[in-house]
Design a protein around this nucleic acid. Structure first.
Lengths: 125, 125
DNA sequence: GTTTGACTTCGAGCGCGCTCCAACTCTTAG
DNA sequence: CTAAGAGTTGGAGCGCGCTCGAAGTCAAAC
C-alpha cells in the first residue's frame, strides 16, 4: 500500500524536492539525472520515487558546494555500475575534506564576527 | 619600533590579505574601503595598517557569504560614526543568524554524504 | 638619465548556476 | 468537445564576484 510510489508531475516533484521546475529541467539537461526521466505519453515528465531519492542526494551535494560538473562526473560513475564504487568513494571523500575545510573557515570567520558583535554590545549598553 | 606601520604597496597588501591586486582594486571601486586609500605621489596606492585590519574583517564577512552590497552598507554605517552602532549591530546579528543556518544545512548535508561514504566502504571492503 | 618592472584606469569578459521567455502542445475538468 | 491550465523545448538573459587586457604612467635601481 505505497501510495507514494505514484509518479510525480514536475510541479509535484518541485514541491517534493524544494527545487523549481526550471531547476529540475536544468539539472536534467546538464546530465545530472541518474536515468532518463519517464514520460507520460512521451512528453510530460513523470518522476519516480527513485528520482526523488536521487535528487535529494544530489541536492545534498549541491548544498555542500559541489560544482555541477563534479556532480555530473559522480552520476556518470554511478551509471557505469558497481565497478566504479572505489572512484565514487574517492570523489566523495575528497569532497568531504573540502567541506570540512570550508566549515572550519566559516566557523573561524564567524568567531571573528562574534567578537565584533560583543564589542558593539559593550559600547551600546 | 613598529616596522609594520610602514605603508604597503598593493602587491604587499595582496600578500598580507590573501587577495589579489585585482580584487583589492575591485573592492575599492565597489566602495568597500573604510576611507580612501593613501597614494604615493597621487598615483600608487599605499595601504596603512588600518587598511589591513579593515580588509581582514571585510574578508571575514565575505568568507561567511555576506554579499558585496551588504558589506558596502555596513562600511557606509561605519563611516557615519558611532551613532550607527545599533544598526551595525543589527546587521551583524542578522548575518550571524544566516550563517548559523547555513552551517546547520551544510552539516546536515555532510552527514548524509558521510552515510553514503560509509555505505560504499561497506561494499568495497 | 635610463631602464625595467610595478602600478594605474577603464572597461570588457567570464564562469557559475540558475531563471525566464516565447511559442507551442498536452491533459484534464466540466 | 472545449477551454484552461500545466507542461514542453530551445535559447536568451541575469546577478554575482571576480578576472583580465590594453594602453599608458610611475618609481627605484643602476
Amino acid at each position: 500500500m505505497t501510495l507514494t510510489e505514484e509518479p510525480l508531475t514536475i510541479a509535484r516533484m518541485a514541491e517534493a524536492t524544494g527545487l523549481t521546475t526550471h531547476t529540475l529541467r536544468y539539472y536534467e539537461r546538464e546530465g545530472l539525472m541518474f536515468a532518463p526521466v519517464d514520460r507520460a505519453s512521451s512528453t510530460h515528465r513523470r518522476y519516480s520515487a527513485a528520482d526523488v531519492t536521487w535528487v535529494a542526494f544530489l541536492s545534498r551535494l549541491r548544498a555542500t558546494g559541489m560544482p555541477i560538473r563534479d556532480v555530473r562526473r559522480y552520476v556518470a560513475l554511478v551509471r557505469e555500475g558497481d565497478a566504479t564504487m572505489p572512484d565514487r568513494l574517492e570523489l566523495l571523500r575528497e569532497h568531504r575534506q573540502r567541506v570540512l575545510g570550508q566549515l572550519d573557515e566559516v566557523t573561524a570567520s564567524l568567531a571573528a564576527i562574534d567578537t565584533k558583535i560583543t564589542l558593539y554590545e559593550g559600547r551600546t549598553s
